[in-house]
C-alpha cells in the first residue's frame, strides 16, 4: 500500500475515534455552587442532554470524561478538584461554567480562585451568572465540534 493511502486510512480512524468520543460524553456531577442547579436542569425534561449523548451523569470520576465545573472554586476545594481531575481517565475535557469558574466572577477576593483555568486546562468557557442551560448545551455542542475538528484533544495531546 502506498504511503498516501496509509495516511488517508489513518485520518479516517482518527475521525472515527473523534466521532465516537464526542458522541457519548459522560459528564461528571461536579456541582459546586449556583451553576450546579442549572447544570441539573440539563437532564430535566425541557433541556434534555440525552439528545446530545450526554445524559449519563456519572458520580464517579473514573467513568466520566467531561467535567463541567459549575460554580466558584474556593482555595479549600483546589486539592479536591485536582484529585478528581486526575482520577478521570484520558481523554477528558473541562467546561468552565459561569463567570466564577471562568474568571472568578464577582468574587475577586481571598477565598475564590480567579478562574478554574488556574488549576485545570479548560476547553470551553460559558459566560453568565449563572448561564442558562441552553448556554451549557451550546457549549457542549461547541466542544463536540472542536473534538471532531481535532482542536480539543482532551488533556492528552496538548499541541
Amino acid at each position: 500500500m502506498e504511503m498516501t493511502n496509509n495516511q488517508f486510512f489513518l485520518t479516517t480512524v482518527e475521525k472515527f475515534v473523534r466521532w465516537a468520543q464526542k458522541s457519548s460524553m459522560w459528564p461528571l456531577t461536579f456541582g459546586l455552587a449556583c451553576c450546579a442547579i442549572e447544570m441539573m436542569q440539563l437532564v430535566s425534561p425541557r433541556y434534555d442532554m440525552a439528545q446530545f449523548g450526554g445524559e449519563v451523569f456519572r458520580s464517579t470520576p473514573r467513568q466520566a470524561d467531561l467535567m463541567i465545573v459549575s460554580g466558584r472554586l474556593s482555595n479549600k476545594m483546589v486539592p479536591v478538584i485536582e484529585q478528581v481531575y486526575r482520577q478521570m481517565p484520558d481523554p477528558k475535557w473541562v467546561v468552565a461554567m459561569g463567570a466564577c469558574a471562568s474568571s472568578g466572577g464577582i468574587f475577586d477576593n481571598y477565598a475564590i480562585v480567579q478562574g478554574v483555568d488556574e488549576v485545570l486546562p479548560v476547553d470551553i468557557y460559558v459566560p453568565g451568572c449563572p448561564p442558562t442551560p441552553d448556554a451549557v448545551v451550546y457549549a457542549v455542542l461547541q466542544l463536540h465540534d472542536a473534538i471532531q475538528k481535532g482542536q480539543a484533544h482532551g488533556g492528552v495531546m496538548r499541541a
Binding site: S103, V119, D123, I124, A146, Q151, A152
Partner: peptide, 25 residues
C-alpha cells in the same frame, strides 16, 4: 505559581478551543 495553564504560548501554537492566545491574565 497556579497559573500554569496560562503560560505564554509560542508563535504558531494552536490557540486552543476557546481562542485564548495565552499570556498572563
Amino acid at each position: 505559581e497556579r497559573n500554569r495553564y496560562h503560560a505564554p504560548k509560542l508563535p504558531g501554537d494552536p490557540p486552543g478551543t476557546a481562542g485564548w492566545p495565552g499570556g498572563a491574565k
